[in-house]
Write a protein that binds this DNA or RNA. Structure first.
Lengths: 333, 333
DNA sequence: ATTAGTTTTGAAAACGTTTTCAATTTGCTA
DNA sequence: TAGCAAATTGAAAACGTTTTCAAAACTAAT
């Protein structure tokens, strides 16, 4: 009554052929006489043989599994990317091992190593702060790694993103054009290049073009949480800020609700623009205007890129920038 | 310059011991003389040896990987469960292979089979409709499977849920007590037992206790999407419905926004209660009253249960019901 | 029939571990 | 210091595939 596994050997015996031949038909190798193939397939069917992927992985050194490191799958932004990743992975017959890192450097290194230990064929990394230790691990491995919706300032790994600087710059310019003088820039940790080097740069450029002096006090660094957003209202209001460019949807929803709850009218008295265009932007009232990112596609393209790398195909552009858009909804005038 | 992998054999040679001994120290087996252990550890460190999990899996017949079948990771409800699953999995040194099924029966069967092929040690299944084919596959495998936040009417697999019937019954009773006569029951596919057998039952029971006749017209079957909710307003209003018990948060948000957009005041003119208490319930305005489910815990407990099953430990209760709550927010009077 | 190519096949060696079982070493006790 | 049990080690056989290389079986042309 013990687990009686059927192996390739059993099939070979029953079909009167060698294991090699069975392996060939299982793998769709064409160099098999049709009659033989038929015979083998019949036996496979009769015995209900299922190849053992682990053994296969050991022998072939391919696992058809890729690792996906994600800060938090409960965050709509990353979840959307991950969905794109999984769909394309499935399309190419890969499975994904998904691991949440909570953007914790040590955890990221640890996860990366267990993924490598498990011999994944490739890795997709999401997370915006790449510690020196992590970078070193990236460098050490031969396993291809691509960043999705994530910036590495040293730009050594292939990546898929949008042009955050240009998008923010454009939105802030629009805010200025509508008469806003004091515009807050609210973002996640400034230790993340995506915020400090890219988005903030767009913000500064827009101000500069308009001749508005940059005021450090208008930059609010947060942890990207809804709650943090809610708590920002007093500070924002007391400084006479009339608009905010926000780097995360939950955060933005928090700011907007905080404002509304305090009796500040959005958008007439306060405009908010968010950055990720997740479902949340649409569900919230007023609906939030947003930079639109092709979230699903960022994941999908990243995974597609990874398949090429795993296949040793040539890739022309290692750092892909997908087009972004600006979606006007009801949180802006 | 080829991938020069260090194997256990290299370590054994350098340390002047057998592979068996190296294996023992790597696996923390206590029957190794401290001096030997130290020597081996030094070599491991020097050579930067990393055990190959695939080979290990083949030899030991354990992969320390579990499969997770999820309808859509982009759905906050399931994403929250999955987060609990992954955290507990990590705690017990497992990784998860996550696969989206879109609740498609064929896809579920297919995914299940590739997971089994990959020799996962266990499986967590989310999805509320278990086709006969899928059930048959469940039955065929020896690999333990537990359902998380998902109902199988035949109840053969271990599962973790809340008492959906009681929760709905309680909420609907409250709605009745507040004077609502026409209460809609809005849910996902009635082909899913969780809706047709459990939630609907609670709804009916509440009506019956209050002596209100059950009207099939007040039952709205949807696909659980935000959009479907938005489109429901005309039907709801025209029938004179004053409250809705909804089975999904996005769906509920859609209904609420649909109402509000049409000028119907929530909650004074229309009350809505949702069922999953995801972030969305809190972010939306008015905040939605909801049945509260310990989402993270459902996942966490399911995974914990699975670890026991994988370990052949005794489990006393195979079908766990976690406590639910009722959270009063602003979408009810 | 023979020959020279082509296809098809099979034997056996990987792949990198764990695990079993027996052999060796060690530590105590008398 | 012999004897014995316990602790420590190692040899080699799994684990279930893929892959290489050569042999065998065809095919077609003479």
């Amino acid at each position: 009554m013990e687990k009686q596994t059927i192996t390739i050997y059993d099939v070979a015996r029953e079909a009167n052929v060698s294991m090699a031949t069975v392996s060939r038909v299982v793998n769709g190798n064409t160099n098999v006489k049709p009659a033989t193939r038929k015979k083998v397939l019949e036996v496979i069917d009769r015995l209900d043989y299922r190849p053992n992927a682990v053994a296969r992985g050991l022998a072939s050194k391919k696992t058809t599994t890729v690792g996906v490191i994600i800060p938090d799958m409960t965050n709509m932004f990353f979840a959307s990317l991950a969905r794109g990743i999984d769909d394309v992975a499935a399309m190419y017959k890969y499975n994904i091992i998904l691991a949440n890192s909570d953007s914790n450097g040590d955890r990221e290194v640890q996860v990366l190593n267990t993924l490598l230990t498990k011999q994944v064929d490739g890795i997709i990394f999401m997370g915006n702060e790449i510690t020196p230790e992590l970078r070193e691990e990236f460098r050490r491995t031969k396993t291809p790694i691509v960043l999705a919706g994530s910036i590495d300032e040293e730009n050594v790994n292939p990546s898929v993103n949008i042009d955050y600087t240009a998008a923010v710059q454009e939105e802030v310019k629009n805010l200025i054009d509508r008469g806003n003088k004091k515009i807050a820039f609210v973002c996640g940790p400034l230790s993340q290049a995506i915020n400090s080097k890219y988005r903030l740069k767009g913000y500064k450029e827009a101000l500069k073009s308009a001749g508005i002096p940059y005021d450090e006090k208008l930059v609010f660094e947060t942890d990207n949480s809804y709650k943090s957003g809610m708590l920002l209202q007093p500070a924002l209001s007391s400084m006479g800020v009339t608009a905010a460019m926000v780097s995360d949807d939950e955060l933005a929803a928090g700011i907007m609700n905080g404002m509304t709850d305090a009796g500040v009218k959005v958008p007439s008295e306060f405009e908010v623009i968010t950055s990720n265009d997740t479902k949340i932007a649409e569900i919230v009232r007023p609906k939030m205007s947003s930079i639109t990112q092709p979230l699903y596609d960022i994941g999908a393209v990243a995974m597609r890129l990874l398949t090429k790398l795993m296949n040793n195909e040539e890739v022309n552009e290692k750092n892909v920038l997908l087009p972004y858009g600006l979606m006007k909804r009801d949180s802006t005038k």
